[in-house]
Nucleic acid binder design. Structure first.
Length: 714
RNA sequence: GGGCGAUUAGCUCAGUUGGUAGAGCGCGUCAUUGACGUUGACGAUGUCAGAGGUUCGAAUCCUCUAUCGCCCACCA
């Protein structure tokens, strides 16, 4: 017996060595598994794409969960003989990364506007590449058996090429347009967003009632009211029946008399306020829709930095945050303030990143018509081509798809994939121009300039499944697409998962994955969301350092049902550190008890031992069923209990008198049984606790290959 | 306003197709030179949110109520 078993299991001296052994074997790569004969060339495939890690920081607890669950999946399938591919990746994570980088600049007293775009891009690229080195080593520390030779980055030339082709195809198919539409604009970050990057926050503010000609109108944003020249009311509102659609009225207003036009529209809620409102189409989504329906004129009041434009007269140049009260004062002076409700509760759109109030603006951006894409996705989902775990995510997805909005994919930031398009400064027309050949507008003959915007990062990651596998002709695409499982955070069901489904079907005609497995948030021990400001962020690497990676992995998976959040406590991880040691010491007992046993012998198995082996088979069959049904949280717990409470507490205990007894045949039977149970458990435990099991496996007498490519015991 | 989920032992949570409740941590008592104290044995603790229904039988299926949480939404 190896002397190392005389000491407790030591993860620190083991894990690095074992990972290196795995990497050098090449078995992370399915092609090498075939070449070395551990996988059959005609075996069915199993593929997972690692959600590309944001290359802007280090691994957090959520990544620990991803690496654990996905590694369990792929190790299990690999042991079952599948041609198994787990493809790792990195995401340039456009806006997210730029924000992280800006914070870094802020500490140095700079902003991104201090740098020319090319220099800024290069600096962020360097920053990203530096981070990506750390990330790779951290992913390895988690034991991830992914195929590093196939690693992809969202900015790799072949990925960008695929993304560009999709952009072009969308344009050719009439699914792309450059529209002057109202978009959500963050005045602080100086970029527009899609509807998903907006967070609603309930705020209590003042609500103002102003006299506008014969009407009283209400608003929470007096600073937008300069250009209001349409008075809108519900067509069925009897109170205002005397006013006809299109009728003109005059009103004394902020900077003098204005002419208002009556508009009747059903969007007005008769119950709300006075049932009459004036509209600001340039800065309000609902107003914009009304204006479009009635073909009304729109005017910009606020510039992109949040300052009032010349239309505001004496207030021009003031920031809206300061101008509001001054405007109200002026109206009061004119006797136009009827009343002010001090406690008006309503939802305000804010930037999900910085909390700045979103200023809707009408801007020319590239939009994708989502309805046709969503309809195809809905058909496939309803036909059962994608299995959701947990299944209620299917409902959440279909509900979102049924109410989908067009997707603004333009971002006014440098860090991202440049949009391959030209814009006419004359008429604003946009042209997709992959080869950089266009120079003149075909509409107005104006000169074209390059679009300086970049793609929404989700537009590229939304194409991840087919882009990384070499669509359309790559061997991997043929071998591994559609992928089997997409395992990721429930949080990004719309951002990423649903868009991958739509774009995957659009480009390849097939759904990109057969099963979506969604995990919940990883919270701190008190079930609170981790955040830097609260100071309760748990670094997974601190835990693996302290308790070993195997212990960490068990803690992440046991009892953690898909879709629900996990409260991560050290106590739980500590318990599984003890478990790793339990495996270690049970092994020591078995090895000590079988030192005089000839591993090549096949003794007659006693009736008693046959019973134990049958019990083992039952347990393995049950656990295998859980593995096949994605119930890792149960399989892990059952393995834990079988090993500890059945094998260690009962079987080993009752083996002691047999081993030291005089019945030689019973002894040999039990020796062979102990070895068999131990090996079976090591195999089944391997996907969960790969390091300690592999380390033990290497110390067993009659084992030659690595445990990671042994056959699953069922 | 719409949708989704949760409510089970002190804490964090399991409970796969309905068959009189489980785990980890914590707690109590005992054990101790022999695989392991990172241990072993034994034990305590729950009207499974509430009400009604289906059923021979419900934590599990249905309806309603309450509380909490999340997501979506253009009432100015």
């Amino acid at each position: 017996m190896d002397e190392k078993f005389l000491k407790p299991y030591d993860p620190k001296s083991t894990e690095g060595k074992i990972y290196k052994l795995w990497e050098e074997s090449g078995f992370f790569n399915p092609d090498i598994c075939i070449a070395k004969g551990v996988t059959k060339a005609d075996a069915p495939s199993f593929s997972i794409l690692m959600p590309p890690t944001n290359a802007n920081g280090s691994l957090h607890a959520g990544h620990g969960l991803v690496m654990t669950i996905e590694d369990i999946m792929v190790r299990y399938k690999r042991m079952r003989g599948f041609r198994t591919l787990w493809l790792p990746g990195l995401d340039h994570a456009g806006f997210e990364t730029q924000v992280v980088y800006e914070k870094k600049l802020e500490k140095e007293g700079k902003t991104r506007f201090d740098f020319p775009p090319e220099e800024l891009y290069k600096n962020i690229l360097d920053f990203t590449l530096e981070n990506s080195k750390n990330i790779k080593s951290q992913v390895a520390k988690m034991g991830a058996s992914c195929d590093w030779s196939r690693e992809k980055f969202t900015l790799d030339p072949e990925i960008v090429k695929t993304v560009y082709q999709t952009f072009k195809k969308l344009s050719d198919d009439g699914l792309l347009y450059r529209g002057k539409r109202i978009v959500s604009w963050c005045p602080r970050h100086q970029t527009s967003f899609s509807d998903l990057e907006i967070a609603d926050v309930e705020k209590t503010e003042k609500f103002y009632y102003f006299k506008y000609g014969p009407f009283t109108i209400s608003t929470s944003r007096p600073e937008t009211k300069f250009g209001d020249k349409y008075v809108v009311m519900h067509p069925a509102d009897k109170r205002y029946a005397e006013y006809k659609d299109g009728q003109k009225i005059t009103a004394e207003w902020i900077n003098g008399p204005v002419t208002g036009t009556i508009i009747k529209d059903e969007a007005v809620d008769m119950e709300f306020g006075t049932g009459v409102m004036t509209i600001t189409p340039w800065h309000d989504t609902a107003d914009f829709e009304i204006a479009k329906r009635h073909d009304l004129k729109m005017e910009q009041i606020i510039d992109l930095k949040g300052k009032l434009l010349p239309i505001a007269g004496e207030f021009a140049g003031q920031h809206i945050s300061k101008a509001r009260e001054a405007i109200v004062e002026k109206l009061r002076g004119k006797g136009l303030v009827e009343k002010i409700d001090e406690n008006y509760k309503h939802n305000v759109h804010t930037c999900y990143k910085c909390g700045t109030t979103i200023e809707p603006q009408v801007l020319p951006q590239w939009f994708i018509k989502m309805k046709p894409l969503a309809e195809k996705a809905l058909e496939r989902i309803k036909a059962g081509e994608i299995k959701y775990i947990p299944d209620h995510y299917e409902k959440i997805t279909t509900h979102w798809l049924e109410n989908i909005m067009d997707w603004n994919i333009s971002r006014q930031i440098v860090w991202g994939i440049p949009i391959p398009a030209k814009i006419c400064d004359g008429c604003g027309e946009g042209y997709v121009d992959l080869d950089d050949t266009l120079s003149k507008c075909t509409k107005c003959e104006g000169a074209l300039r390059k679009d300086t915007d970049t793609f929404d990062t989700w537009f590229s990651s939304g194409q991840w499944p087919f882009a990384t596998l070499g669509f359309p002709d790559g061997k991997d695409f043929k071998d591994f697409y559609p992928t089997d499982v997409m395992e990721t955070a429930g949080e990004i069901i719309f951002f990423w998962v649903s868009r991958m489904i739509m774009l995957g079907i659009y480009r390849t005609g097939k759904v990109p994955f057969k099963t979506v497995y969604l995990h919940g948030l990883v919270l701190d021990a008190k079930a609170q969301k981790m955040s830097k400001s609260k100071g309760n962020v748990i670094n997974p690497l601190d835990l693996t350092e302290k308790f070993g990676t195997d212990a960490f992995r068990m803690g992440m998976v046991v009892g953690n049902t898909p879709g629900t959040s996990l409260a991560l406590s050290e106590d739980k991880i500590r318990a599984y550190k003890n478990f790793a040691n339990k495996i270690w010491n049970a092994t020591r007992f078995v090895l000590e008890s079988t030192q005089d046993f000839d591993t090549k012998a096949s003794p007659t198995v006693s009736e008693k031992d046959k019973g134990l082996l049958a019990e083992l088979d039952d347990a393995m069959r049950d656990i295998t069923k859980d593995m096949d049904n994605f119930r890792y949280y149960l399989a892990g717990e059952k393995l834990y209990h079988y090993f500890w409470n059945t094998f260690a507490d009962v079987i080993i205990e009752e083996s002691k008198p047999i081993i030291s007894g005089t019945d030689e045949s019973a002894k040999q039977s039990r020796q062979s049984t102990l070895l068999h149970i131990l090996k079976t458990c090591l195999k089944a435990l391997h996907p969960f606790v790969p390091f300690v099991t592999e380390e033990i496996w290497s110390s067993l007498e009659d084992t030659e290959s690595l445990l990671m490519v042994e056959n699953w015991p069922a």
